[in-house]
């Protein structure tokens, strides 16, 4: 039996380290112990800039018996949807993690990413055509409206001093909810076709 006192829950180390075995649970020698099962997770959220939002995001974590390890609240920067990105490190038993994510969503908190699993996707496309003459900002607006994606980034290359004959190109980085990339690309193609613009998109499954 180890002689050290049991660490307080909020001081437990991150990860499935052997140190977190509890002396009151001899079966933790094997893989089955409760304390040893605690797993660390990183959740990325985006919050609306309103009072009480951070608390709304943290309550489900506490309610489900998870330990909060750290919060990185990036108040200075905004996500493409104009919200505040927050990164939360927690540890909890494996069977509670999905409940936490479900509770967060139930409270209207947008989970962008849970561990390696991203709930937001990006896609880069290149547009080719008479981009300026066909009102690029209107094109982008229509693309955003129809696809529910947001334009994260744009680079335009218009031929210098060229007449209206020469085509210009634009590289567009679009952000959308996970699993919606294919739909976003289709929407972009539709809008582009209306203005006789060519779309060079990646293959399915590639960013």
């Amino acid at each position: 039996m180890p002689s050290e006192p049991t660490p307080a829950p909020d001081e437990q180390s991150v990860g499935p380290s052997d140190d977190s075995e509890s002396e009151s649970e001899p079966e933790t020698e094997a893989d089955g112990g409760r304390a040893a099962e605690l797993q660390a997770h990183t959740i990325r959220l985006e919050l609306v800039d309103e009072p009480g939002q951070l608390l709304a995001a943290l309550t489900p974590i506490a309610d489900n018996g998870a330990n909060l390890l750290s919060i990185f609240h990036e108040r200075g920067s905004l996500t493409p949807r104009g919200r505040i990105p927050v990164e939360v490190d927690i540890e909890c038993p494996p069977d509670r993690f999905d409940d936490i994510l479900a509770d967060l969503r139930e409270r209207g908190v947008n989970v962008i990413q849970a561990d390696a699993e991203e709930y937001g996707d990006e896609v880069t496309v290149v547009l080719v055509g008479h981009l300026v003459d066909t009102d690029l900002s209107d094109t982008l607006k229509r693309m955003q409206d129809r696809s529910e994606a947001s334009v994260a980034d744009i680079d335009l290359s218009a031929p210098a001093g060229a007449g209206s004959e020469a085509h210009s190109s634009a590289r567009l980085r679009l952000r959308a909810r996970a699993g919606e990339i294919a739909g976003v690309v289709e929407a972009v193609r539709e809008v582009a076709a209306e203005k006789d613009i060519r779309v060079i998109a990646p293959l399915g499954g590639q960013p």
């Binding site: 880069t124 290149v126 080719v128 680079d155 290359s157 218009a158 031929p159 020469a166 085509h167 210009s168 190109s169 634009a170 590289r171 060519r198 060079i200 990646p202 293959l203």
Partner: peptide, 27 residues
Amino acid sequence: VAGIRDVPGSALELAAEDGRTVRLVGE
């Protein structure tokens, strides 16, 4: 089917700036 005739050099440059390039791919 779409070809490469109207792919301008500027499209390849923009792709390259982002670590990409353009290929005629068939699926």
